[in-house]
Structures are given as C-alpha cells and as structure tokens.
C-alpha cells in the first residue's frame, strides 16, 4: 500500500483526497490489509467459499410490470438539474 495506490483508489472512487490526508488514509488501508492477512492465516481447507454471509437462496419475482410508484417530477426533484424530463449532467461524449 503506497501513495500511488491510494491516489488511484481515490480517483476510481471519485473521492477528493487532500494531499495531507494521504499518509493517514494509507496507514488506515494498510491496517485493513493486515486484518485480511491475519484472516488468511485461518485454516479454511475443505470449507466451501461463501458468496454471501447468509446461507439463503435468491428469491425470485414474477415478471409483472408495475407503474404507479413515485412520479417523475418527484424523482427529478432530487437531481441538482433537470430539464424536459431528463437529468442534466456535465457533458459526456466520446
């Protein structure tokens, strides 16, 4: 775990990380990795990996469309900017 990795993770997460906080965050992330290392030492041979902590199966929903939830105007009201029924964002185009 070094400064470059932390900067990259911050970028991928779209987090603004002031330069003076990088050493602190680096150390905090390193602590998490030490915890992971400690857990790797636990013998897990013959134990099937779990994808989820609950030993349950995914319930399924019938394919029935429903409308009548929150209205568009209410949903758009959460956005900083909206127009003509669209959410507005800074321009994205290739």
């Amino acid at each position: 775990m070094d400064k470059l990795v932390v900067e990259r993770i911050a970028y991928l997460s779209r987090m603004k990380l002031p330069a003076q906080e990088i050493p602190v965050v680096t150390e905090q992330l390193a602590q998490i990795f030490r915890l992971v290392e400690a857990m790797r030492a636990v013998p897990t041979e013959g134990v099937e990996p779990m994808a989820h902590p609950l030993d349950l199966q995914q319930p399924l929903r019938p394919d029935e469309p429903r409308t009548g939830g929150p209205q568009r105007a209410d949903l758009l009201a959460n956005a900083p900017e909206a127009q003509d029924g669209l959410f507005l964002v800074p321009r994205v185009i290739e």
Binding site: R61, D63, E64, P65, G69, R72, L75, D84, G85, L86
Partner: peptide, 20 residues
C-alpha cells in the same frame, strides 16, 4: 415485461424517465 431487479416496464420509446 419488467426490468431485471425492479417492476418498472421495459417497453421501448416511453417518455424519458417515466419507467424509473
């Protein structure tokens, strides 16, 4: 007929953001 993780309709060509 409906989306993969919610019951919104999948029909093409609706007014923007009305199937959300």
């Amino acid at each position: 007929q409906s989306k993969i993780f919610c019951a919104c309709p999948t029909a093409f060509g609706a007014e923007p953001n009305t199937h959300t």
